[in-house]
Simulated scan of single mutants.
Amino acid sequence: MSLPLKIVKKRDPRDVTKPTKFYVSTKSTGEVTFEELALQSAGQCTVKEADCYAVIKALEHNVKDALSQGKIVRFGTIGSFQISISSHGAATKEELGIKSVKQKRVLFRPDKRLKNLLSSLKFTKEEGFNK
């Protein structure tokens, strides 16, 4: 299977006065819903779709709960999830507090086996490609 590519025109968000440039980008081929994952999983094992859905739903809750407790969630050969923040800097420790937090995000770090998938990817060109 190959990953489709497309050409997109983008402006530099740091300097909108610069001319726009063209870039190669991946093209989404759709999405997979929670329910579809449960159905696929049920077809690959001996449990029913409803059981798979319940397990995936519980997993979703448990991942959120662990992250909210400050834990790193290692998700098998997929990778790990972790909460990260950025804050304003200060000259002394006393100047910092909870209000110093300016951004919160979830980091995903792919496992090396998932990263290896990248080396085996094949691409297909959409119209508009010359080479």
Results as ranks from 00 to 15, higher is better:
M1Q: 11
I7S: 04
R11C: 04
R14Q: 14
R14M: 08
K18D: 06
P19T: 12
K21I: 15
S25T: 14
T26A: 13
T26K: 00
T26M: 12
K27N: 10
S28H: 07
E31Q: 07
T33D: 10
E36F: 12
Q40K: 13
S41P: 02
A42H: 10
A42I: 06
Q44N: 13
T46P: 03
T46S: 15
T46G: 07
K48T: 15
A50E: 14
A50V: 11
C52V: 06
Y53I: 05
A54K: 11
V55C: 01
A58L: 09
H61W: 07
V63F: 02
K64P: 00
K64A: 13
D65K: 07
A66D: 01
L67I: 07
L67M: 03
Q69E: 08
G70H: 12
G70C: 06
K71N: 11
F75M: 14
G76Q: 06
F81E: 05
S86K: 11
S86N: 13
A90K: 08
A90M: 12
A91K: 15
T92F: 09
K93E: 15
E94H: 12
L96C: 00
I98A: 11
I98E: 11
S100T: 13
S100K: 03
K102C: 05
K102I: 15
Q103G: 13
K104W: 11
R105W: 04
V106E: 01
D111N: 03
D111P: 00
K115M: 15
N116I: 03
N116A: 04
S119E: 02
S120M: 02
K122F: 00
E126H: 12
E126D: 09
F129A: 03
K131Y: 08
